[in-house]
């Protein structure tokens, strides 16, 4: 199945980001295709390289970046990002900023769009 994932909450503060990540890992292991991952609302904070969590904790931004390195399209909404001070310069590698049109295309092209948020 072709899946798209929408993440609406920021890292650490909510479990949504972890749940989305775990869901994607499980889906990939089952052989599903991830059409794309889209960050909206406070979700845009998931992929800033400015985060520096304690070393014995998971590094959420690096985790997303690793998924991006596998070729999964990871998109941060530009409107939501600008409002929150997230710009190209602070993004981890393998992630891009673009518009809500990208979410629309993911929604239309994927068999299922799965939302993680509150």
């Amino acid at each position: 199945m072709k899946l798209a994932v929408l993440v609406l909450e920021g890292p650490y503060n909510h479990e949504a980001s972890d749940s989305a990540y775990n869901f994607i890992q499980a889906a990939l292991e089952k052989g599903h295709e991830i059409r794309g991952i889209f960050f909206y609302h406070d979700g845009v904070y998931n992929v800033t390289k400015l985060m520096e969590p304690p070393q014995d904790d998971r590094h959420i931004a690096n985790r997303w970046s690793e998924l991006g390195a596998k070729g999964i399209d990871i998109v941060v909404c530009i409107a939501a990002a600008k409002r929150r001070g997230i710009v190209d310069d602070v993004l981890v590698p393998n992630v891009r900023i673009s518009g809500l049109g990208q979410l629309t295309m993911m929604a239309i092209e994927a068999d299922r769009l799965v939302t993680f948020g509150d």
Partner: peptide
């Protein structure tokens, strides 16, 4: 909270597509 406002922005964009 900003959920409903930013949600409205998504609706306006998606309405411009063939959906």
């Amino acid at each position: 909270s900003i959920y409903v406002y930013e949600g409205l922005e998504v609706k306006l964009i998606m309405a411009a597509y063939d959906a």
